[in-house]
Design a protein around this nucleic acid. Structure first.
Lengths: 114, 114
DNA sequence: GAATCATACAACCAATCAGTTGTACGTCAA
DNA sequence: TTGACGTACAACTGATTGGTTGTATGATTC
């Protein structure tokens, strides 16, 4: 059913916005969009345990915002710009809803009959 | 200090992404961007208590995503499209970081000396 | 094969979250 | 002035979060 697809979309949106609603994770995104970094290299940048950073990376990965590639014994993460764009397009959709409202108001002003 | 401004920006980003990381709140945003709605009118649309919806509206308001105007005894909410755009611009910034990476890679390919 | 490095994951904890019910207060209509 | 409506907020609950430490597993190096 279409209903379920929409549900999945909402699940995905929840995951994406939630993943971005943490400053450490946003910072990780900035790094992995600029280049490839192993989890331990990333972890070295933050004042928290390796496990904490690893969990942040896992949250971003589950949301589809980054991918990991094995490289020897390390796992290198790189950001997925398409996922970032998909979040941006959700916001554009919201903006379109607003444009619809404005268009309706403009119509009323243009045709003041009734 | 500049440091504190950045901190405030991060606080704001946290609040914005967190506010949008809930499907009920995203749905409220769709409505209040399309028009003005009283809190109780909004509440009638959802299968949860008035208080729950009122709290969702408060979260969106604190994040700056909507504003309320008194109108008689009701409080009408309408979405702030500028706030939505500010979130979009954060994502554009992320995308710029990625573009920088690609540009650097292209340079390496263009000048294979070294 | 042993030691080491990089990663993943479980178990735990305090804090926050999303929901509930109940209460209080301002505004409007009779 | 009394009641009903619309809103806000406090107090509570179970679930989730972001952090911790400890342990297990894989790949690398000696």
């Amino acid at each position: 059913m279409i209903r379920d697809v929409i549900e999945d979309d909402e699940d995905r949106a929840d995951a994406l916005f939630h993943a971005l609603a943490d400053r450490t994770r946003r910072d990780i995104m900035r790094r992995v969009l600029a280049g490839e970094y192993s989890v331990s290299t990333l972890a070295a940048s933050y004042d928290m345990s390796f496990a904490a950073v690893q969990k942040h990376v896992a949250v971003l990965e589950r949301a589809g915002l980054l991918r990991k590639r094995r490289h020897g014994r390390e796992q290198r993460a790189s950001g997925d710009v398409a996922a970032v764009r998909s979040v941006a397009s959700m916001l554009t959709e919201l903006e379109q809803v607003w444009r619809g409202r404005i268009a309706r108001i403009d119509e009323l002003i243009a045709e003041p009959e009734d």
